[in-house]
Amino acid sequence: MFKLFKPGDLVVFIICFFSIILIFINFYRVPSGSFISIENNNQTKEYSLSSKSVIELEGITIEINSGRVRVVKSSCKNQYCIMQGWISKLNQSILCLPNLTKITIKSNDNNITHDSTAY
């Protein structure tokens, strides 16, 4: 056993382990200014990601719970929107074309593109 794994392998293993964890933390981090945007029949409404609510729209029911959002009920034929399950990451979206609905997680953090605004 010890001939198979040298002590250096342990170091490499630790590096890989921490790297993977850090990459995942960064990847899954949602900026604090994020919100859910729901476009339905050409109307757009915004909801807080931290709210806990069930939104009933024409033909589609959407659930927001602990920073995630999903479609729970839909009148569409294929039910792809329900099958997609929860989304929680920035810029992820759920589409339901028969119901003309688009759910997206957006960020309103304007500082990403510029340092200050002149007016």
């Binding site: 304007n110 593109t113 510029h114 340092d115 200050s116 605004t117 002149a118 007016y119």
Partner: peptide, 25 residues
């Protein structure tokens, strides 16, 4: 440091290897 007083902005130095970037309302 970038200073913005009531919409008027003065750039001093620059952050890292880029310039200060500002938007106009």
């Amino acid at each position: 440091v970038l200073t913005n007083f009531g919409g008027n902005i003065l750039a001093r130095g620059k952050p890292n290897n880029r310039y200060w970037e500002i938007a106009i309302q």
